[in-house]
Amino acid sequence: MNGVNTSIRDILYEEPGKKARRRIAIGTVISLLLLVVLVLMMIRRFYDSGQLDSKYWIFFTKSTTWKFLGKGLLGTVEVAFASGALAFLMGLFMMLGRISSFAVARIISRILIEFSRGVPTLLFIYFFFLAAPQFGLKLPAFWKISIPVALSAAGMVAEVLRSGVNAVPKGQTEAALSLGMRKNSVFFKIIFPQALRYVVPSMISELVIVLKDTTFAYVVNYADLMQNSRVLISNYDALLSVYLVAAVIYILINYILNQISVAITKHRNVAS
């Protein structure tokens, strides 16, 4: 479902002839039937186990339910933006170190990037949840989830930014230097703004990863979409329906973000 992907699909086979068209038609009918059977079997499962009972779904017609879920979603979005902004700042510094002319800065940044990319988010969360309080670092739940999520995204952000910087043609640096600009102002006034433009789609994909990682907020008891879903579950004694709805909300948000990223890439490919 991605602009680049459709192209390979369309060249794989030529315009089908009479015979192939018939075969495709037969295949379409058979696979459609199978699909319908599969969906019916799934509905049957729900029905047989009593999960289609109206008591599991009726509260979704109440506005309070959606208000509560919306509040949780707001918590999720807040954490995602805080982590995203933090990850961007940390990633920026790591990237600057990585391309710096000082060997020490390069090595340190390299280690930090590998560390950030090689350690699972959950381990970072456990660090801020279990280890940090032991030496007196007491943070509110919001930061207990935002900082670890940001830490685990920062390394990737640094690498994405670096790929953006590398994508700016070398000639521009040379031209700017030959005009007498200083190295720093060449980077910040000419290279970096363009690099930033290049990496916008990848940054949006990175935001999706951050958003997905924020679901671990339940570990630190922060009221995000997942945590509020749990409260709903205990209020209405309806586990399956609430978790499914929450999952669909997550999938839709991330899907939209990904589509925005694809749209920007496509728009650029047309423009250039």
Binding site: P16, G27, S31, T215, M226, A247, Y255, N258
Partner: peptide, 27 residues
Amino acid sequence: RISPIKPIRFVGDLYVQIFRNIPGAAL
């Protein structure tokens, strides 16, 4: 996803969109 049969293609696309967008913890 590259098969010429539309429903099969659709299921492949749907799979990818669901599982790349669902948070691991939620799944």
